Amino acid sequence: MTTIEQCVDECRQCAGLFRLGRDVEAALDMVDVFEGAQQLLIARPAPIQQDWAFILTHMLDCQERQDWLGLADWMEYELVELLQKARSAH
């Protein structure tokens, strides 16, 4: 399993925790997921970095509003899609 595939799996697992209402546990995992994604995406082309900044901003907004389902959606769909795009751009 590649590092990107592992990060995708972690995104989905963390999103699942948010969907189950386990927001404290998910929030702790989310820090690691975001750090991992940051490391994977920072060296990618500028459009991917811009998309990462856009997605991260929205996820942090959801966290601030305690919109756990919205955060789960951003992680499970938008962030996963970006990671998959970054894998094919590598």
Rank of each mutant, 00 (worst) to 15 (best):
residue 43 A to E: 07
residue 44 R to Q: 14
residue 44 R to I: 00
residue 45 P to T: 08
residue 45 P to E: 06
residue 46 A to V: 11
residue 47 P to E: 06
residue 47 P to K: 09
residue 48 I to G: 08
residue 49 Q to I: 03
residue 49 Q to T: 08
residue 50 Q to I: 06
residue 50 Q to H: 06
residue 50 Q to N: 10
residue 50 Q to R: 15
residue 50 Q to L: 09
residue 53 A to H: 12
residue 53 A to I: 09
residue 53 A to W: 03
residue 54 F to D: 05
residue 55 I to H: 08
residue 55 I to S: 13
residue 56 L to C: 04
residue 56 L to K: 14
residue 56 L to M: 11
residue 58 H to F: 04
residue 59 M to R: 13
residue 59 M to P: 00
residue 60 L to H: 03
residue 60 L to F: 04
residue 61 D to M: 02
residue 62 C to K: 12
residue 62 C to G: 06
residue 62 C to F: 13
residue 62 C to H: 15
residue 63 Q to G: 10
residue 64 E to C: 00
residue 64 E to S: 03
residue 65 R to P: 02
residue 66 Q to F: 03
residue 66 Q to A: 09
residue 67 D to I: 09
residue 67 D to A: 15
residue 67 D to E: 06
residue 67 D to M: 01
residue 67 D to N: 14
residue 67 D to Q: 09
residue 68 W to D: 03
residue 68 W to V: 07
residue 68 W to I: 02
residue 69 L to Y: 05
residue 69 L to P: 01
residue 70 G to H: 07
residue 70 G to Y: 02
residue 70 G to W: 05
residue 72 A to Y: 03
residue 73 D to V: 10
residue 73 D to A: 11
residue 74 W to D: 13
residue 74 W to M: 06
residue 75 M to V: 13
residue 75 M to Y: 07
residue 75 M to T: 10
residue 76 E to L: 01
residue 76 E to C: 04
residue 76 E to G: 14
residue 77 Y to M: 11
